[in-house]
Write a protein that binds this DNA or RNA. Structure first.
Lengths: 236, 236
DNA sequence: CATCTCACGGTCAGCCCTGACTGTGAAGAG
DNA sequence: CTCTTCACAGTCAGGGCTGACCGTGAGATG
């Protein structure tokens, strides 16, 4: 690690950080290379040296954005008051992060990627590794008592989808509605399913277990972790 | 209604239709005034005469887009095979529309509006009237047996949020996961709550009834319906 | 028929964004 | 000490988009 490498990494981090701030503050459309260049305080040559195209810049920014969101969940979890039961606390933690501007920026990128194949590829690549991390974090937040339930995988998936929908809805209707109340009622609905004896509810389908996003992509990715049935990966 | 008025309306509809098609096909960023102008086959003067700014054009396009989405739900409902019970059918109908490109375009507009105040105002205005319509359509799809339940308002709200989240997730993970399966499980979770004797579940909160998006804006809107405690509005 | 209105046609300047290009100076290699 | 490499600086041309601007001709009005 020479001085040049250090400087290189520092400049890179400066640029990517500025890109993330811009994405959060002014959105995808206004996050131009010039805007990032101004925010980062670097020259045009520096920016284009590190990121030849705008998509490359977005690719790096998305990685940092996802990492920040994940870190925010952990921090919220650590700072959360232990009021109520584990489920209520988990939902509050997840919601506090997923209604923040950082998560809103991520949702915006997803939405824009619908008609932008290159951005979608970049997003897929960046999110591919973060997706399992997301559910790992959700598992951590929920805690071992809840994750042990047979109904948990489906409920976790539903909760994530629900929170994504609420994040989008917040853009227009944030002040019109009480999402915490809605989430509290959601918790009231699923709580009995998580505390009942395992194996009983919502497990009558043909397959069972995590059949959705969580297990997908596992076959074609790098598969750095052994593919045995270990459901929880080590934390570090 | 003179010939001029007819021509005016025809040109306007041509432009707005082209804008909606563009929003669906190429997204918000690529829906420039030039792109719409080309698609509609009108001159620049015509477009700017009807819509002086790009936001004005978006405002009109959103109205049509929302109307189309609502119409699509009704058509799907009419064409739906009567397999399964009312809840499963309702969820399938709603999902088939909300994973289509038309709804994706609407979600993209929402996401982009996060950092675009003018667009957000336009969206709020356009969606303000459509929001109650949305839940009216959902009520229609669900049918009278389900809407009669005391737990229905909350479940309807949760279902809408869930579908919005799934619509966003589909952009990246459409082929990786089985949303129908997830939605089926969702139905399995809430079905008992809708068929139980009314008044029992999920109604222990301080307030009750529809406290979320549905009732919001009601004070400043036309408030065509009486504000008494009637929990279910007439269907037509 | 004369006049007016207005929906619309077409051009243009200004602006910003993107990425290519060449110059430069400091860090490393020999 | 010399040369090379490379991170970075700054400029530039090209292109696309927006909205202002003025012209025009068909319909409405008297």
């Amino acid at each position: 690690m020479t001085r040049r490498d250090e400087q290189r990494d520092a400049t890179r981090a400066q640029i990517v950080g500025a890109a993330v701030e811009s994405l959060i503050e002014v959105g995808v459309a206004a996050t131009t290379t010039l805007e990032v260049q101004r925010r980062a305080g670097v020259s045009r040559g520096a920016l284009l040296h590190h990121f030849p195209t705008r998509e490359d810049l977005f690719g790096a920014a998305i990685g940092l954005l996802v990492a920040r969101n994940e870190r925010a969940v952990r921090e919220e979890l650590a700072a959360a008051s232990p009021d109520g039961d584990a489920l209520s606390r988990s939902l509050r933690v997840l919601r506090s992060v997923m209604c923040g501007p950082s998560f809103g920026a991520e949702m915006e990128l997803w939405a824009v990627a619908r008609t932008n194949p290159r951005l979608r590829d970049v997003l897929r690549h960046a999110e591919g590794t973060a997706r399992r991390d997301l559910y790992r974090v959700v598992d951590e937040v929920m805690g071992p008592e809840l994750t042990a339930s047979a109904a948990y995988p489906v409920i976790a998936e539903l909760t994530v989808q629900l929170l994504r929908g609420m994040a989008i809805s917040d853009v227009l209707y944030r002040e019109d509605t009480d999402r915490d109340e809605l989430l509290e009622r959601w918790g009231r609905i699923v709580r009995p399913l998580l505390t009942e004896s395992p194996g009983f509810p919502a497990a009558a389908g043909p397959q069972e277990g995590r059949l959705t996003e969580r297990a997908a992509h596992g076959s074609r990715a790098t598969s750095s972790r052994p593919a045995t049935g270990a459901s929880t990966a080590p934390t570090s």
